[in-house]
């Protein structure tokens, strides 16, 4: 379980560095990188902060990961969660943040 930061999309705004509850993301050459990827809790706070959409989340093979990634973006009251499989096929789940969990 960890995150991957796309250096090409990263704009170096440091928001992910600021928010990570484990202080795991640092800055190198003006871009964010995850210094200790094994120490990620998987909270996805950095994904939610990143306006550039540069951060994606994945499961390690030891917990069933098969190479897909999870990314997210928000628009108004809606939050989109996008799962992209290794072939690039996407599935999006849309959550209205003003609605409660049903369970």
């Amino acid at each position: 379980m960890s995150v991957r930061i796309n250096t090409n999309s990263c704009v170096g705004c440091k928001k992910c560095i600021e928010v990570c509850p484990g202080n795991l993301i640092k800055l190198k050459d003006g871009k964010a990188f995850i210094k200790r990827e094994k120490d990620c809790w998987g909270c996805t706070s950095c994904l939610k902060e990143c306006q550039a959409g540069a951060i994606a989340f994945f499961l390690g093979a030891d917990i069933g990961g098969k190479g897909s990634t999870l990314s997210t973006r928000a628009q108004g009251d809606l939050r989109y969660w996008i799962v992209t499989d290794p072939n690039g096929i996407q599935k999006t789940i849309t959550i209205n943040t003003k609605e409660s969990n049903k369970y």
Binding site: L59, G64, K66, L70, W81, V83, N101, K102
Partner: peptide, 21 residues
């Protein structure tokens, strides 16, 4: 579908695991 959403709101890895698997 409702479980997928509920987990995204607190433990996104579980939803990813279901969809990825």
């Amino acid at each position: 579908e409702d479980l997928y959403k509920a987990y995204l709101n607190m433990a996104p890895s579980q939803t990813l695991k279901w969809l990825e698997g």
